[in-house]
């Protein structure tokens, strides 16, 4: 279990994490979803003991990361965003080194190394220097180094970035298997679909702030089952649009910019003609319309007024 309370981390003037609180339980994948620079890596760093929180509390399996550093770190497995491998050493030698830090030894150590290589599909390349591995293989070994000691809590920082689709699917299966075995998994990503398919609970972060959290269903409910309409064309002022849309039931402006407009509306497909008619009446010219079903993406746009892109 990970308990994060009012976590704050500043780098000089920059507030990278601003009062974030959440609890991740064992046996489930907790997702931290947010765009680049949202503060995900910094949050993971504060949990793993790499960074000193400016304020707030973090506990791992009940151990405070600041006051009981070694005890909390002993329960963690960390898979960093960037690879952390010795290129000259073999996969086995890498695993041997990382596992030794958790007190594994002898036959148990050997067994765990073999198991980790097996689940990540690297057993037949175990003795080769890592520098000969493909990117996907390195990612999998990076993962194996984080789970070789069977941690109670696993921190994964965007483990699928830059990974080929095949390795990505394999990694996601590995993560699910870890959670199924009872591990508490914290998973950060900026991929919506990944968060939707993988995570049992989610926290959405932006600019260091936690803007929503809950299960997927809870988060969907926040959208009120409204669809999202993206329109491009030429539009009058936001006030005029708002006045025009007042006649359309449940319609709400999410974002209004020069040349583009995002509107949330229940059952947008049925209301579309009325909506377009209302816009035309105030002088708008619509060239293109796209409609999206409710998703994390739409929730993110609704909450932050911007799209979640790399």
């Amino acid at each position: 279990m990970i308990e994060v309370e009012e976590l704050r981390k500043e780098y000089g003037d920059l507030v990278a994490v601003d009062g974030v609180s959440f609890t991740a339980q064992g046996g489930a994948v907790f997702g931290l979803l947010g765009p680049n620079g949202a503060g995900k890596t910094t949050t993971i760093g504060c949990i793993s003991g790499l960074r000193q929180p400016t304020a707030g509390r973090v506990r791992v399996m009940g151990h405070d990361v600041v006051f009981e550093g070694p005890a909390s770190r002993a329960r963690l497995g960390v898979v960093p965003q960037d690879l952390a491998l010795y290129e000259e050493l073999s996969a086995t030698e890498n695993l041997l080194y990382w596992a030794s830090a958790y007190g594994l030894r002898g036959a148990a150590l050997k067994k765990r190394i073999t198991e980790s290589l097996e689940v990540t599909g690297l057993l037949d390349r175990a003795r080769e220097p890592v520098k000969r591995f493909s990117g996907g293989m390195k990612r999998r070994l990076n993962f194996a180094c984080g789970i070789v000691h069977e941690p109670q809590v696993l921190l994964l920082d965007e483990p699928t970035v830059g990974v080929d689709p095949q390795s990505r699917v394999r990694l996601q299966e590995l993560v699910k298997a870890q959670a199924a075995a009872g591990t508490c998994v914290l998973y950060t990503t900026h991929y919506m679909e990944e968060a939707e398919t993988l995570c049992d609970r989610l926290a959405i972060v932006d600019h260091g702030k936690l803007i929503a959290q809950g299960s997927l269903n809870e988060l969907r409910a926040m959208l009120g089952e409204r669809d999202l309409l993206r329109l491009s064309g030429r539009f009058p002022s936001e006030a005029q649009i708002a006045a025009a849309l007042a006649g359309v039931e449940g319609a709400e402006i999410v974002q209004a910019e020069e040349g583009s407009l995002i509107v949330a509306a229940p059952q947008a497909s049925r209301e579309l003609p009325a909506l377009l008619a209302a816009l035309t009446r105030v002088g708008a010219e619509v060239w293109e319309t796209t409609m999206t079903r409710p998703s994390l993406e739409t929730l993110f746009i609704k909450l932050t007024g911007k799209e979640l892109r790399e």
Partner: peptide
């Protein structure tokens, strides 16, 4: 540069 330093600091021996 390898990133191994950062990971090493998350190990129990620190």
């Amino acid at each position: 540069r390898l990133g191994t330093l950062r990971r090493a600091l998350t190990l129990p021996p620190g």
